[in-house]
Simulated scan of single mutants.
Amino acid sequence: MSNDRIQYFVERFTGSRREVIELWLNRSRRYLGMIRETLRKHGLPEDLAFTAMIESGFNPVAVSRGGAKGLWQFMAKTARNYGLRVDRWVDERLDPEKSTVAAAAYFRDLYKQFGSWFLAQAAYNAGEVKVARAIKLTRTTDFWELARSRHLRAETKDFVPAIQAVTLIGRDPDRYGFEVAAYESPRFETIRVPPSTDLRQLSRSAGLPLAALQRWNPELWRSMTPPGSFYDLKVPEASKEGVGLAILAGKASVGRGVISKAKRVHIVRQNETIRGIATRYGLSVKDLVRWNDLASGDRIRPGDRIRVINVPASATNKNEQAWVR
């Protein structure tokens, strides 16, 4: 990788941008192991991990002016195409593990389309259509030739060599004079919690800082689990017992306007529709139809009872104990 543009970015990142790059390198220690393992499992080059450094500086809650979010800066449409949940309750673009799996799948598809990792990274930035159009107009699949043409944006032309530069630095920070602290990844446990669990109330009941729950579950951007189904919540390993006891004691109260234990059924009123009921409770039409054994064309009538939470009305102690695992 002796390309002059890569060398330009190496000099910039070790010079005027050194402080920022050192911050990013230290932040990367929390995620690099997980990202590399995910890429390995998908049969992809581990150095693709450094794409996230240029995309977000390894900030899992980064948000761009255009609305892209997370480590991998997914737009909502692309995120949904790759299996991430993005709705009024959950934004899995902010979940480092799930968004990394989605990014790996996206890179795999881009490589299949273009047959080059440089082109795949260019398409990750600019979109497949723009890169395919540039290839057609220039009649070359060499990224560096494309970068010398006028058919790619300056941002995309710089995106690829910038990634290669931080990859060189990230492989051997000491060589470039960066101080990167050792990092021991904190351990977490997963607890299954009821629908509409309020993280604020849970933190008070369990004696756990709200910031800790939000840090482990950044996808819950409203600090509340979704209504309609149980949710696997991440908690610090040392706090699992306290959180579990708070849940079992029913101390994680739900917020207003969402489903409580006492209300698992909605009584249909005049002129209500399945879509309107789903919107009211923050659910999907598909879930309501499935939970209530409705066909897509079935009509609902005033007085009909519509289940709005996917758990039995007579939950037993065994069910409740299953919230903690």
Score class of each variant (00 low, 15 high):
55 E>I: 07
86 V>M: 04
45 P>M: 14
70 G>C: 09
84 L>N: 01
81 N>H: 09
70 G>P: 06
62 A>R: 05
51 T>H: 04
87 D>L: 04
55 E>L: 10
79 A>R: 00
78 T>P: 03
86 V>A: 04
62 A>V: 07
73 Q>H: 08
81 N>R: 10
82 Y>I: 12
68 A>I: 06
82 Y>E: 10
79 A>N: 00
80 R>M: 15
50 F>C: 00
72 W>P: 02
84 L>T: 02
46 E>I: 05
79 A>Q: 00
49 A>K: 00
75 M>V: 15
55 E>W: 03
68 A>V: 05
62 A>I: 04
82 Y>S: 11
53 M>H: 01
71 L>D: 03
44 L>S: 11
54 I>K: 00
44 L>C: 13
60 P>C: 00
61 V>Q: 05
59 N>A: 11
50 F>Q: 00
79 A>C: 06
76 A>T: 13
53 M>F: 03
61 V>E: 14
65 R>Y: 11
66 G>I: 12
67 G>V: 10
61 V>A: 06
85 R>G: 01
52 A>F: 12
82 Y>T: 13
44 L>R: 10
75 M>K: 12
49 A>G: 02
55 E>M: 07
66 G>R: 14
49 A>Y: 00
74 F>A: 09
51 T>V: 15
73 Q>F: 07
79 A>T: 00
67 G>P: 06
85 R>H: 05
83 G>K: 01
83 G>R: 01
81 N>G: 13
48 L>N: 11
58 F>S: 06
54 I>M: 01
83 G>S: 05
87 D>A: 04
52 A>T: 03
61 V>Y: 01
52 A>N: 02
87 D>Q: 04
74 F>H: 06
65 R>Q: 10
85 R>A: 07
85 R>N: 12
68 A>F: 05
46 E>K: 11
50 F>Y: 15
69 K>A: 14
82 Y>K: 09
64 S>Y: 07
68 A>C: 07
70 G>V: 10
65 R>W: 12
54 I>Y: 01
55 E>G: 04
47 D>A: 09
66 G>A: 14
74 F>P: 05
76 A>K: 09
76 A>H: 02
62 A>F: 07
58 F>W: 10
73 Q>V: 08
55 E>T: 07
80 R>E: 15
72 W>C: 03
55 E>S: 03
45 P>C: 13
57 G>A: 14
61 V>W: 02
56 S>P: 07
61 V>N: 08
52 A>M: 11
70 G>N: 05
54 I>T: 03
65 R>H: 14
80 R>S: 13
45 P>K: 12
53 M>P: 02
44 L>Q: 13
66 G>W: 07
59 N>V: 13
69 K>F: 04
